[in-house]
Simulated assay, not measured.
Amino acid sequence: PYFRETLPGETPGKKLDAMTNATVIEVLNPLNKPKAEDLADAELLIIDIQDIGLRYFNYVTLLAQFLDLARENQLPVILLDRPNPIGGNTISGPVLEVDFRSQFGVYPIPLVYGMTFGELSLFFNKVFGIGANLTVIGMEGYRRDFTFRDTGLHWVPPSDHLPEPETPLYYAITGFLGEMGVFSTGVGTTRPFHYILAPWIDGELLSQRLARHQLTGMKFIPAAVKQFYGLYQLKRTPGIEIVIDDPQQFDPFISGVAILRTLWELYPDKIPLANPAISTSLDTLLGGPQVRSAIQKGIPLFQILAMIQPRLVEFRKRRESFLIYPEN
């Protein structure tokens, strides 16, 4: 999003920054990067973006595109680093399979990658051979175990549905679930991504079943919430609320999979994983069909977690060389 006021330009569709009169180029699809001629008079590319630490958030793909654009145009890049609101230590979820590249991820990294945007840019630039002339300006006083609130900085929402600095933690759990479109994750409430809601969900039963998994750092409680727009608009809808007690201990991916697997066990007719549209949505965001297929086969949660570990171990090793801030 572009946060400052814009003015109409001389030609239709052109926008100008109200303060500097500079041309504003809005990138709505991260796969559609600016054209070379858009940067004809540029001497430097500065990247100053608040990322949220999640592979399928558009800014990650946008970062890769900007680095590639800078290399093509022989422009030096300066990236101003910012905190990772999910945390600099949290690595979770499957590594993207190359066949599932999309606007939700172009390079094989985990769902939650445990790096700041500056560290990720260094990783992309070297490991995947982009080769841009990149300089990262690091943060002073930042620690990997900081939550965003620990930094004392003001949170400017990078998206309308990420209103609080804690929201990205919940988005990491339910973001890929919401793409199925068969239940609500709370978008349309005052707390997006904090809920799993549908008229057919028994919140008491679902929370009890999820408690059996003994997931660390979080809990599930029955809820009934009114949505102001989206699915079940203006209806008080039953379900569960997700509560993260310890951001350092919870695993966003396995928490999301536990929710999906439990819903599928309780309400198989409402969770049509074999439906092509739904399976494509899930596979695209998760980075491959492995997890969905495992759920359909009834594979236990701990085995699903074990399945993705080899590539996560490999990623952790490659990641070490690009960390600006030491691990605690």
Score class of each variant (00 low, 15 high):
Tyr2Ile: 00
Glu5Leu: 13
Lys15Trp: 15
Thr20Asp: 07
Val27Glu: 08
Leu28Asp: 10
Leu28Phe: 11
Leu31Gln: 06
Leu44Ala: 04
Asp48Ala: 14
Val60Gly: 11
Leu63Ser: 02
Ala64Asp: 14
Asp68Ser: 14
Asp68Leu: 12
Glu72Arg: 12
Ile78Asn: 08
Thr90Val: 12
Leu96Asp: 05
Pro110His: 04
Leu120Cys: 03
Leu120His: 01
Lys126Gln: 08
Val136Pro: 01
Gly138Cys: 06
Gly141Thr: 02
Phe146Asn: 09
Phe148Asn: 05
Asp150Trp: 10
Thr151Phe: 04
Leu153Met: 09
His154Lys: 13
Leu162Ala: 08
Tyr170Met: 10
Phe176Gly: 03
Met180Asn: 06
Pro192His: 01
Tyr195Ile: 00
Leu197Thr: 00
Pro199Arg: 02
Glu204Ala: 00
Gln214Asp: 15
Ala223Arg: 00
Lys226Asn: 04
Phe228Arg: 09
Pro238Glu: 03
Pro238Val: 00
Ile240Thr: 08
Phe250Asp: 08
Phe253Leu: 10
Gly256Ile: 03
Val257Met: 13
Leu266Lys: 06
Tyr267Phe: 10
Ser281Ala: 14
Thr284Cys: 14
Leu285Thr: 07
Ile295Trp: 04
Leu301Glu: 10
Phe302Lys: 11
Pro310Val: 02
Glu314His: 07
Lys317Val: 03
Arg319His: 07
Phe322His: 05
